[in-house]
Design a binder for these strands. Structure first.
Length: 604
DNA sequence: TTAAAGATGAATAGGATG
DNA sequence: CATCCTATTCATCTTTAA
């Protein structure tokens, strides 16, 4: 991640096969061609790369040529410097969007944070620095007119002062703390405030790719330490204030975890209102693990236009559990499930296990499929333990020992006293993928488990996406971020929604190969463009793509969960974690797409 | 060199109990 | 209310084998 080892390879592929249920809406047939990587003055250069010095005039003209006022361009470049072209463009786009429509403060939050954080002497560990007067020294005032409604002229309550003092005591600067309070509102909880500050720090960290590796480690290490300390301090705060109002501010998981409803059970909530700024098109759909560290979903929701997450456990769709949160702006009326319905219980999914399944194993659903499986040595230990018990039911303590391991590793009974982990193709079936979807192409068995464990449950996602079918009978254009092995695309395809164009962004070459292989095997007629790294998707690239395919109808993706997932013993660092921080790229790209398409709504 | 196996808990939620 | 118990979890790293 420190360096982008893959160049932009955008293979535009027009398939000319024509024996499938999807009719021809394809572009004129041609052989595979490769789109030229954008190489203009302002693109292709990652955050860290520097432009040639003294090219400010050219740079300004470049943006003026894109239609921005020269004065504004000059000012922004003055503010941000001429190194980070993407950021400059994003900021300009944000401004133009703000001028067009008064939007909620959230929309400019990131840009502000990012730009504030560009001045980074304080890469040094923050914890011991209680003063940090140099932090936040740069301009913030230019922006004070865009988002300060009348509310912030009220006198600070004592509670506010209390929070301020507390944050300062945690090592945050007073500026930092007061800005956080101002942004999050006077009623904000301490978690919200610290999350806000952490988000700022995250944005800063993600913007510094050019620092030395050891420095980076130091920085990230200090961040994670900071986060841990933050949580401890929050606990202290909670104890201090006993049960205060922030408890109900925290997003809680519903029980049962059925979101706005599943095919078998419906929820009381049948309607919801979506904030104006979040309304589609483009529609978007974001996914991540439900059981993330405390406060993570609050942050994610805050960035994604304050839409409440829909938490759903896939055990209501298939034979395995998968507790996930989804934030989307799709309608929730008239959803329908994929057919044929997948096996709903373990016995339905694996009929052969029934013969060996002991009565004292009451499981009917498997737990979440993860990225690795149980070892053979463990199942052998279990077998020996069971054989010592003879033919009768084993004693309760042995039953408990076995069942604990069964639940932990998702073992199934494949013979007398014989347990085994699931095969990769059984993963595929449970998750709604075609059998052998991840097989072949040089991918190892280990990597198949990894890719499958990280993917969507297709039936679950398809249920949510089903509302798109009537809306786009001619097919849709999809921007698929963190595509993995293509769960979103398969869901849409199985729903019978034609895929006119798919731009997939996926770092793993093996996964991209799986996806392209599926694309060809299913005789897709649309266009598949693959990009390796989300960090290469900047405003220029998006503009180019939007011009090429005519705008996106759906932006879908689940950002990396490994720093959020409970199975991670090593680096469960939350949203600031190395990979999970890419959530902010999801938001960045989604917001860019909205802005660019909004500015061209006349044409599209 | 690569694939597979094996070892490695903590965070979080919810329920029961007193 | 605190305390204890049960249950779950899109993983990472090192060693070993091929």
């Amino acid at each position: 991640m420190a360096e982008n080892n893959t160049s932009l390879d955008c293979n535009i592929d027009w398939n000319s096969d024509d024996d499938r249920e999807i009719d021809n809406y394809g572009l004129p047939s041609s052989s595979t061609l490769t789109a030229a990587p954008s190489n203009g003055g302002s693109s292709g250069s990652g955050e860290g790369s520097s432009s040639s010095p003294g090219s400010n005039f050219e740079l300004i003209q470049h943006f003026v040529g894109m239609g921005f006022p020269e004065k504004q361009v000059a000012q922004v470049i003055d503010e941000l410097g001429d190194k980070n072209h993407n950021l400059v463009l994003e900021t300009l786009l944000t401004y133009s969007a703000l001028e067009n429509s008064p939007k909620q403060p959230n929309d400019i939050q990131v840009s502000e944070e990012v730009q504030r954080d560009l001045s980074v002497q304080e890469l040094q560990p923050v914890q011991s620095d209680h003063s940090s007067a140099d932090y936040c020294a740069n301009s913030f005032d230019e922006f004070s007119d865009v988002d300060s409604p009348a509310r912030d002229v009220e006198t600070p309550s004592s509670d506010e002062d209390d929070k301020l003092l507390f944050l300062a005591g945690m090592g945050y600067s007073v500026d930092e703390a007061s800005i956080a309070i101002e942004r999050c509102g006077p009623d904000s909880t301490l978690e919200e405030l610290t999350d806000f500050i952490c988000a700022a720090q995250m944005a800063r960290a993600s913007d510094i790719h050019f620092i030395e590796l050891d420095e980076k480690k130091l920085n990230l290490g200090s961040l994670s330490k900071l986060k841990r300390r933050k949580n401890q301090d929050c606990d202290a705060w909670k104890k201090k204030k006993h049960r205060c109002e922030e408890e109900d501010e925290l997003i809680r998981l519903p029980k049962p975890m059925i979101g706005y409803g599943v095919p078998t059970e419906s929820n009381e909530i049948v309607h919801r209102t979506i904030p104006e700024a979040a309304k589609g098109p483009p529609y978007f759909y974001y996914e991540n693990v439900a059981l993330a560290p405390t406060g993570v979903w609050n942050t994610i929701s805050r960035f994604l236009y304050d839409i409440e997450p829909e938490f759903v456990d896939s055990k209501f769709f298939c034979a395995c559990a998968r507790k996930r949160g989804y934030i989307h702006n799709l309608p929730i009326e008239n959803r329908f499930p994929l057919v044929p319905l997948p096996p709903f219980t373990i016995h339905e999914a694996f009929p052969l296990t029934k013969k060996w399944w002991p009565a004292w194993d009451k499981r009917t659903k498997l737990n979440c499929l993860q990225t690795s499986i149980g070892s053979a040595k463990m199942t052998e230990r279990i077998r020996k333990a069971l054989e010592e018990c003879g033919d009768d039911d084993p004693p309760l303590h042995v039953q408990k020992y076995v069942l604990d391991l069964c639940r932990k590793w998702n073992l199934v009974w494949v013979g007398k006293n014989k347990l085994a982990p699931l095969e990769p193709d059984e993963f595929e079936t449970l998750l709604g993928f075609p059998k052998n979807h991840t097989r072949g192409g040089g991918i190892s068995r280990t990597d198949r488990y990894k890719s499958l464990g990280n993917s969507f449950q297709v039936d679950t996602v398809a249920y949510h996406l089903s509302v798109l079918k009537d809306m786009y009978p001619e097919g849709i254009n999809v921007l698929s971020l963190f595509s993995g092995i293509g769960g979103a695309e398969i869901a849409l395809h199985r729903l019978g929604i034609p895929l006119k164009a798919v731009v997939e962004v996926e770092i793993s070459e093996a996964n991209r190969n799986i996806m392209r292989s599926w694309w060809e095997q299913t005789n897709q007629r649309g266009t598949l463009i693959d990009i390796a790294d989300v960090q290469q998707v900047d405003a220029d690239k998006l503009s180019e793509l939007i011009d090429l395919i005519g705008g996106f109808d759906l932006v879908i993706g689940g950002s990396p969960c490994n720093n959020l997932a409970g199975s991670n013993r090593v680096s469960r660092d939350g949203l600031e974690g190395k990979e999970s921080a890419l959530f902010y790229d999801y938001f960045r790209i989604l917001d860019l797409v909205k802005t660019i398409m909004g500015s061209r709504s006349v044409r599209y």
